[in-house]
Design a protein around this nucleic acid. Structure first.
Lengths: 257, 257
DNA sequence: GAGTGGTCTAGACCACGAA
DNA sequence: TCGTGGTCTAGACCACTCG
């Protein structure tokens, strides 16, 4: 058992993460490193409390993260069973949480090729939840993964007039545009709404992606909102078939009603 | 404050749901009914503890559900702020949790049009995580929403040999196939892996959907797994453009590292 | 400085599954 | 019957926001 002072020093060294996050990472590493096989039971909550010198609350918060990650299921009267020994990630995308939007940007890079201020039409105003005549910043770019020379997406980005003075966004970026807005203007993205559809590529889009005009694409539109619910940024990405897939894992933690 | 006996009687009447679920539903109803506007702060945790006669733990579990639903954000030193006053659902799909897979099936209906036992090839075995020569049940059907006569998807379903004796699956169904397997065989789905891609429709698929051959579609493949990680069912749905979209909401609950 | 939500402890009772 | 995870209470200290 640690005293408070020792916990604080420890946390400082490790980057000041909560105990349950540290414990979750420890357990994830043990599972992915092969200490447990699929079907094995983890130690009980009581055992972990003793082993790691923390309360049951801390252990349970950590185990919640394992369930969310799809590594473990839990059942009263049985225990915590390992159902997967690897985190599902790949060159394909896997978003379960808003913080994953930040991670995604670091695995790929976005190259902005054009930037202009546009006075929006009535139709665009509808899409952007604004009024015709407003002047939004309009960016066009391509996203690349490290593993291929062909772009994985053609992306159009609309930025709210309040942030159109944003600087240094041309060329190759390893960070997301919305996180740049947060930095430069002190805004905070609290909500992202995402819609996925299938579309036919226009000539312009197809050219940028080096595929045939009219071929199918996965279209992902994301609305980034601040605390007041205002639309900060709208991004629309078109991914040609075979170059991109969108993956998710859903795990049952208790019986549905 | 309730005695234990009163809590039990109460729970029985309300369907035996945990207190924090009941509290979450109460708060969701208050928000969607207009008691709070966007930007308003909910009462503090302390206030709710007094108002509802529960502990802070119970209040916090309830508020977690509101954050997951995208109705509220929480910030230390500030409070719990309303950022949306309606649950995001529509004719389009919105899956955040494994239990949503059950709800989706009740909003739409699946009409199974063919059913046969197939001896799988090496290529199919790869996809189904089995061995060539195994005999899987193969279903073909269309999914309809109540609002339109045109199907919203063309669906192919592969069912593990262990469950190929499943009964009563032909024709119109308002329940999901995987939940029928659970019922008839006592299995439990604990994990669903989902991959979304864009594809061109084959002639057969296009005919079933009454669109042009080669037109784009949103392809959603789902692998349903039991506790042991075994593949129980694989479903592959093709949705023509304009008839379907896949929506998600992500909400920030704390600052990412 | 007062109040907020985030984290954490040390207890407790329960329904359920397995032996 | 015994141990599991699910729920719940009553405390506590902290970093942070805001007046």
């Amino acid at each position: 058992m640690f005293t408070n002072h020792e916990i604080d020093r420890d946390a400082f060294i490790r980057g000041n993460q909560p105990r349950y996050v540290q414990l979750a990472n420890t357990l994830i590493n043990e599972i992915t490193d092969g200490k447990y096989q699929i079907g094995d039971l983890l130690p009980t909550e009581q055992d972990m409390c003793v082993q790691f010198g923390v309360s049951r609350f801390t252990v349970r918060e950590a185990l919640k993260k394992l369930v969310q990650s799809g590594l473990v299921t839990r059942q009263p009267g049985v225990g915590s069973k390992v159902i997967s020994t690897q985190m599902t990630t790949a060159y394909s995308q896997n978003i379960m949480d808003i913080s994953d939007f930040y991670r995604y940007a670091t695995d790929t890079s976005l190259v902005i090729q054009s930037s202009e201020i546009i006075t929006i039409t009535a139709e665009q105003a509808d899409m952007l939840e604004g009024s015709a005549g407003e002047t939004w910043l309009f960016l066009i770019g391509n996203r690349f993964s490290e593993k291929s020379e062909l772009p994985i997406s053609y992306t159009e980005i609309w930025i709210n007039p309040a942030f159109r003075a944003i600087k240094g966004i041309m060329g190759k970026r390893s960070e997301a545009i919305h996180s740049e807005i947060e930095k430069q203007f002190g805004e905070t993205v609290v909500k992202v709404e995402q819609t996925i559809t299938a579309t036919s590529l226009t000539k312009k889009q197809a050219n940028a992606l080096q595929v045939k005009s009219g071929s199918p694409s996965l279209c992902i539109a994301r609305k980034y909102r601040n605390r007041k619910g205002e639309l900060i940024e709208l991004s629309i990405s078109h991914h040609p078939e075979t170059r991109f897939s969108y993956n998710s894992v859903f795990v049952k933690n208790n019986i549905p009603a």
